[in-house]
Structure formats: C-alpha cells, structure tokens
Nucleic acid binder design. Structure first.
Lengths: 141, 141
DNA sequence: ATATAATATTGTAACGAATACAATTGATAG
DNA sequence: CTATCAATTGTATTCGTTACAATATTATAT
C-alpha cells in the first residue's frame, strides 16, 4: 500500500470506519475529484476499476463518511444529493443552465445572525444559484 | 370573493398566472401557513376542503409559483423539497432530530464573497442544521 | 344562451433516487 | 482450518416527482 492509500486508511480508522478496499477507493475518489459527484457518478467511474462494485456499497460508504463528518452532503437543488470532501468553509454556486457547481470563497463563520439562541448549530451551508460566466457568454452569441 | 382572495388573485394575475380556484387556494395555504410545507403536506391539508384536488395540481401550481418567483423552493435536506412564500431575506435552520424548520434573521445580501466574477447570481440561500433548543432540553432529561 | 376553443385539472403510469434486506463473500481470530 | 463477524452484493420496495392522455372547467365568439 502506497503512502496515499495509507493516509486514506488512517483517515478512516481515525473515524472508526474499517478501511476496506471499496471504502478507501470511494474516499480516494472524493478526495481527488472535487466536483461534488452524486452517488451515481462515483459508482459509474469506480466501476471501471472495480467491476464488482455495487451501488449499495457506494450508498453505504458515503453515508458512513457523512455521519462521521468526513464528507458533506450537498443538497443545493432538489432531488439530487452531492458529496463534497473539502472541509474548509466555502459556498457553492450552481449554474442553473449548465448544472455545473463551483466553490467560492465566503467566510461563513463571520456572518452574524439572530434568532437561533439555545440551538446547537452543527453545519452551515451557503448556496447561490444563477447563470455562470460561461453560459452568459454563450447566451450572447 | 372577499378581499383576501382578490389580493391573491391579483398576485397571480400580476405574474401571468390565471387565478383558478385551486391555484388561489394553494397560494393562500402557502401564505397562511409559513411552515415550509412539502407538496404532500399541502395536498393532504387542502384535500380536506377541496376533495377533488389532485396532487398533480399541487405540483403544477407550486412549480408555476416558483418559476415566476412568487415562492421559493427550499432544498435544505436531500430528497425533500419544501416551499416558502416569504420573500424577505432570511436563513433556514433545520433541527436534525425533530425535522422542524425555522426561519432566522440574517442579512444575506451583506455577506461578502469572492470568486464569482462575471456570474449572474439569481438566488442566495443560507441553511443551517443542528439541534433545536427544544430537542436539546428534551435530550437532557 | 350556445357552441367552440383554450386552459386547468385529474388520475394513472412511469421513472429515478434512495432504502431495506436477505444472501453471499471476504476478513479475522482462535 | 474453522467459526464468527463484518462488508458487499443484488434485488425488491418505497417514495417523491414527472409525463401524459382523458376529462372538466373556463373564457370567447356567435
């Protein structure tokens, strides 16, 4: 096992998740490709290398990861859940025409808000939607 | 038709939506009960008064409303879309234990962010999750 | 008022994402 | 090597949503 894989194994063990081959592969995928994939996208792409992989395994793995906080489940638009490994605070912008999701910088923790006294806030999400620069250019033509 | 209903009819006409009885009832429901209902909840509750109402009509109506910007589709958690009439800017907090969603004050437009140059931003959402004050109290017992 | 056209509504079928679960496979310890 | 436990698989099922043809309702013109 190379260095990268043993790091991934470590991440999992730290969170009380046994580092099986599939789980490691799935986490590796999420770490490498930060394009907020759906379960289906993870499944289709990993299936090439691991032909025995089942979609249920992907569902199991990502929900384990989400439960321990290793990855975040993004629900920017209805009926699709996407997964994001990145931990540093950022917002998500979804282009409504092309469907592309990109990260943007925003200091979510500096935002001041009111009306949630005595609540325990566990996660904060900022989602913008609109037309991305590329689509705007294409539309002009 | 009373004053309230003719106001609702007006809102719809202004947005080029013909004010049919069902559409008015559905919009009225969203205006009165600001608890971010799902299509199912709207359907079940209105069915009592309008027994002929079909779920397809609710889907049609809310998607018309969303398209013209009369109501907002909330996707705080995966696999459920909720609808919100309120137009003034606020955030949504979802209690993960009880599922209750409440609004909170946050000035979304004052937040400064970076990395979305040349994009046209059409909507901004702020979603927090955690444990609400009531659940926290209950857990202690 | 009546006929005609346009639109809204209904009910059902079909789809897709997600979950549940029993059966199988794989890993681990004695 | 065997027994035990956990991971994985494949399938069946559920549920929210969409699609669509049939029906009902509304508006318009005669």
């Amino acid at each position: 096992m190379n260095q990268k894989m043993s790091n991934i194994a470590n991440e999992l063990t730290k969170n009380n998740i046994k580092p099986s081959i599939h789980r490691m592969r799935i986490l590796e995928y999420l770490m490498d490709k930060r394009d907020h994939p759906t379960v289906d996208e993870i499944y289709i792409n990993l299936k090439k290398e691991c032909p025995t992989l089942s979609k249920a395994t992907v569902y199991n793995a990502v929900s384990l990861f989400v439960n321990v906080g290793l990855v975040k489940a993004l629900t920017i638009e209805g009926t699709e859940v996407r997964y994001d490994y990145t931990k540093n605070n950022h917002g998500h912008f979804k282009g409504e025409q092309c469907g592309f999701i990109c990260d943007f910088d925003i200091n979510i923790n500096q935002m001041n808000f009111d009306g949630l006294d005595h609540c325990e806030i566990l996660s904060k999400d900022v989602n913008f939607k609109g037309i991305c620069s590329e689509c705007l250019l294409n539309n002009k033509r």
